[in-house]
C-alpha cells in the first residue's frame, strides 16, 4: 500500500516538476510548480509528518505560488519562445544532481537503521519550539517583523508626496 502510494506520488511530483521546468508558458510552469509542492506535501503525509506537510501546502501553495503567479503577472512581457535547447542548463542540473547523489552515498547516515521515534505530533513540535529552539524561533520572529515593517515603510512613501 505504502510503496504503491510512494510510486504514484513520486511519478506525479516528478512529472509536475518536469513540466514546471519545460513548459513554454510561464504561467503554466508556475501552476505545475504548485502541483509539485502538493506532491512533496503528500510525501510528508506518507511519512506521518502531517504538520510539516500541512505547513508546506499552507505556505508554498497558498502563499508562495500566489506570489510567483503575481510576480509573473506584474512583470510579464510577452515572452518569446526560446528556439534553442539550453544545453548549459542540462549540464548544470546534471552536475548538481551528481554532486548530491555522490555526497548522499558518501554519508554514513544511510547505513544506520532509522531509530524508532514517536510520531511527530503538533504538540511535540510546539514543545520543542518553545524549549530547545526558542532562541532561533525568536530570531526568526524578529527578522520577519523587521521585514514586515520594511515592507510597510516602502508602501508608506506614497502618502508623503500627496
Amino acid at each position: 500500500m505504502n510503496s504503491a502510494a510512494f510510486a504514484v506520488i513520486s511519478i506525479l511530483t516528478l512529472a509536475a516538476a518536469l513540466a514546471a521546468a519545460t513548459l513554454q508558458k510561464l504561467m503554466h510552469a508556475a501552476l505545475t510548480f504548485a502541483v509539485a509542492f502538493v506532491g512533496i506535501a503528500a510525501f510528508f503525509f506518507l511519512l506521518g509528518a502531517e504538520f510539516v506537510g500541512l505547513v508546506l501546502v499552507f505556505v508554498y501553495v497558498g502563499a508562495v505560488a500566489v506570489l510567483v503567479v503575481f510576480t509573473i503577472l506584474l512583470t510579464r512581457r510577452d515572452v518569446k519562445k526560446s528556439e534553442r535547447f539550453n544545453w548549459g542548463g542540462v549540464f548544470v542540473a546534471a552536475a548538481v544532481f551528481g554532486g548530491l547523489i555522490w555526497s548522499i552515498f558518501k554519508t554514513s547516515a544511510l547505513a544506520v537503521a532509522a531509530p524508532q521515534i514517536d510520531s511527530l505530533t503538533v504538540k511535540r513540535i510546539g514543545d520543542l519550539l518553545m524549549s530547545n529552539y526558542v532562541w532561533p524561533l525568536q530570531c526568526v520572529g524578529l527578522v520577519l517583523t523587521a521585514a514586515l515593517i520594511g515592507a510597510l515603510i516602502l508602501v508608506m512613501n506614497d502618502s508623503e508626496e500627496v
Binding site: 501552476l31 501546502v57 499552507f58 501553495v61 497558498g62 502563499a63 505560488a65 500566489v66 503567479v69
Partner: peptide, 9 residues
C-alpha cells in the same frame, strides 16, 4: 486552513 489557502490559486 491549508486547504482553504489553495482557493486563492
Amino acid at each position: 486552513f491549508a486547504v482553504g489557502s489553495t482557493t486563492e490559486l
